[in-house]
Design a protein around this nucleic acid. Structure first.
Lengths: 344, 344
DNA sequence: ATCGTTTCCCAAAGCGCTTTGAATTTACGC
DNA sequence: GCGTAAATTCAAAGCGCTTTGGGAAACGAT
C-alpha cells in the first residue's frame, strides 16, 4: 500500500493525504480523521527511502565500528552504549545504522556515509589523540558527536566525556590513602584518548604523594579479560609486585582478579583493586556491597545523551557545539583495603 | 556531486554514466574508464536513498532489539553476533540497521520495517517457543533468518542453531562420568528456545544415569553475572549443595565462580563447572589450558553465517529455506575434576 | 551504394514521497 | 447577489537514481 493507492482509495489527492498524515494545517479536521483511519486500516507507512529522498533527510544516525585484530570495537561497552543511543533514536523515529569496517577503511566509511546520504549524522567512538576523523567530518559537513574527546584537536566540536583524569587521580589517591605504595595501572590502548587522560590522573596522584612513575607497573592494551590476566600475572610475579591496581575496564579487571587468585592472593586483603565501571547491564558490579571499588559512570546513559545531543543538533541545524564533562562516582566495594603490614 | 552533475561534467548522459559505473556491457571500455576516473576524482558515490528507491532494494538488513526490564537483548553475546554479521554485510555493500524497541513494540517494529521498506530482510534473535515473529515475517513477505530455532513452529524457515540438546547432554554426562551426583543447571530464561533444549539435554543425561530431576538444582533467568552469583549462592548454601554446575552462559558462569569462591570452595576441586562458551572476543576462555571446561561455539561465526544465508536468500529471491545445525566442541579446562571423595 | 548488425549512447519514464503554486469551494460582509 | 478572503483541495514538479526503448554512428557484408 503506497500513497497513491491510499489516495485513490479515499478519493483524495496524494497531496492532501500526505498533508493530513504529516499534520499540516491546510487540511480540515474531518478529512484528516478520515485519512488517519484509512491509513490505520490499510496499515500504511510511508516508504522511508522515498520520503527521505524527498525531504533530503535520511532519518538515520550512523555508527562506524572499526574492526581488526589489534583494535576491536565491538565490545560489551559498545553494546551498552548502542542500547542507550538506540532508545533515543527509536523514540524520535530515527534508525541506527552500523557500519562494521576493517579499520584501514574507516575514513572511507565516513566518506561513503556522507556521500551516499544514508545518515544525517554520526557518533564517533573511541577518539584517539589528534583524531583525524573530526577534521574529516567537519570537512564533509556531516553533523557528529564524539563519545570522548580528542586532545590535540583544537577546533570546536560536540563531545560528551567523563572526567577521566580526575577519576583516576581519585582512584589512585584512594589506594595511596590506604597505605599502598606500589600501585599498578592496567590501562587501555595508549593511542586512545581516554587512556592517556587516565594515565595522567594516575601519575598526577602519584606525583602529589612524591612517587615517581615505574614503567614496570604500567600496562596498556586492549581491555579484554585475557589482557587483564596477563598484565596481572606479569606484575604479580615480578621482582617487586604491586599491592594495588587501578584498572581501566571492568572486563580486564575480571582478568586481574583471576591473576590475583591464581597467584594465591586475596582480593581486598593482599591486593587492592580499583576499577572503572561502565555500569554494564550484563556485568553489573552492583549488590548490597559492590564487589569492586570503582569509579562508576553509566555508558548507557552516555549513549542516550550523545544521541540526544546529536539529534538536537540535526534538528536545529545550527552548528553550536555541545560539550559535557561528566564526573564519575567513586564507590567503595570489597576489593580495596589497607595495605598489609608485612612487605611481600 | 550527483549523477547529473557528473554526467554534465563528462559530457555524457546520466544513463551512460550510470551504466558505466554499474558495469553494464552497453558502454565501451574507454568511456567506462573515463567515467570511473572522474567518479574517483570527484569522490562520487550514488545517493543510496535514490538508488534503492529506483532499484526497489534497501541494501540494508534489519535487526530488531527488544529492550525491557526483564529481557535485555543488548548483551555481549549479541555484540559479537553483530560484529560477525556486520563483517559480511559491509563486504557485500549492505548496511545494518538496528532498531532498539521496547518489547511490547516488537511486532510493530517488524511491521514498520516491512512497510517502510528500510530493509531487505531481517535476522531474528532469541527465538522463543512458538515464536510469533516467524509467522509475522512470513505474512509480511520479508526474508529472514532465525538465529536459533523456535520449537513448536511447524512451517519451514531458515535458521542456524547449535545443537543445544546434545551439547548439554554431553556436558552433563562429563560431570556424571567424573562421579558427580548432584549437578545443578543454571539456565537462561525458560521462555527462550535454547534454554528449553539445554534443559532437555541436561535431563536426558541425568535420566540415562538413573537420576530424577531435582527442581532445587535448576534455575533459569537472564544470563547476567549477578544472576549466576545469586543462583550459585542459593544452591551452594542449600541443604544439599551440588558438586557440579552446568551453566548456559559464560557471563553467568563468572557469577557462579564468584559464588563458589565466596563460599570458600575451590573451583575444579570442590566444585566442577561446565559452561557454554560463545567464544566472545572480549571474554575469552582461551589460554594454554582454558579456565573453564566448556561447550564452545563461536557466536561471531554464527553471525557471519546467518548474514551470508540471508544475503544469499535475498539475492536469489527463491524462498528455499536453509537450515544449519552446528555441533559444539566440548573442551576440557581447569574447572572440572572428579568429585571429592568426602560428602560435603 | 545499400542493407543488416553491432556498438555506443541518449531521452524519458518511473521508484514513492513532499512541496510549490494554483484552483476550487465555502464563508462572510455588504 | 456580488466581491473578497479564508478554507480546502489538487496537479505537477522534483528529490537522484535505474532502466526501458530507441536512435545514431560505425562496421562488414552483399
Amino acid at each position: 500500500m503506497n500513497l497513491r493507492e491510499l489516495a485513490e482509495n479515499l478519493g483524495l489527492s496524494q497531496t492532501t493525504v500526505s498533508r493530513a498524515l504529516n499534520g499540516y494545517p491546510e487540511v480540515s479536521e474531518t478529512t484528516r480523521r478520515r485519512v488517519r483511519a484509512a491509513a490505520e486500516r490499510f496499515n500504511y507507512r510511508p516508504n522511508l527511502r522515498a520520503r527521505s529522498l524527498a525531504i533530503g533527510r535520511a532519518m538515520a544516525i550512523g555508527h562506524v565500528i572499526p574492526i581488526s585484530k589489534k583494535h576491536e570495537m565491538v565490545n560489551p561497552i559498545f553494546a551498552d552504549f548502542i542500547a542507550g543511543a538506540g532508545e533515543t533514536y527509536s523514540r524520535n523515529g530515527f534508525d541506527m545504522v552500523l557500519s562494521v569496517v576493517s579499520d584501514d577503511n574507516e575514513t572511507r566509511a565516513y566518506r561513503d556515509m556522507a556521500a551516499k546520504g544514508s545518515v544525517d549524522g554520526v557518533i564517533v567512538h573511541g577518539p584517539r589523540r589528534n583524531d583525524s576523523r573530526i577534521r574529516l567530518l567537519k570537512e564533509l559537513g556531516l553533523p557528529f558527536v564524539v563519545h570522548g574527546r580528542a586532545s590535540g584537536e583544537t577546533t570546536c566540536y560536540s563531545w560528551l566525556d567523563i572526567n577521566n583524569t580526575r577519576s583516576f587521580d581519585r582512584a589512585t589517591q584512594l589506594l595511596l590513602d590506604l597505605g599502598h605504595r606500589r600501585i599498578a595501572l592496567v590501562n587501555g590502548l595508549e593511542e586512545m584518548d581516554f587512556a592517556r587522560r587516565r594515565r595522567k590522573g594516575f601519575l598526577q596522584a602519584l606525583a602529589r604523594a612524591g612517587f615517581s612513575p615505574d614503567s614496570d607497573l604500567m600496562r596498556s592494551g586492549e581491555m579484554t579479560e585475557p589482557y587483564g590476566f596477563r598484565a596481572g600475572m606479569e606484575m604479580l610475579t615480578g621482582s617487586s609486585p604491586p599491592t594495588g591496581f587501578v584498572v581501566s575496564s571492568y572486563i580486564s579487571t575480571l582478568g586481574v582478579r583471576r591473576a590475583i587468585e591464581t597467584s594465591g592472593l586475596d582480593l581486598g586483603r593482599d591486593v587492592s583493586v580499583v576499577t572503572h565501571d561502565d555500569d554494564l547491564s550484563y556485568l553489573s558490579n552492583d549488590g548490597d556491597v559492590p564487589v569492586f571499588t570503582a569509579t562508576r559512570s553509566s555508558v548507557r546513559a552516555a549513549g542516550r545523551r550523545c544521541a540526544e545531543i546529536l539529534l538536537a543538533q540535526i534538528q536545529s541545524g545550527d552548528g553550536v557545539p555541545v560539550q559535557e564533562l561528566w564526573e564519575t562516582e567513586l564507590t567503595l566495594g570489597l576489593s580495596t583495603g589497607p595495605r598489609n603490614g608485612a612487605e611481600r
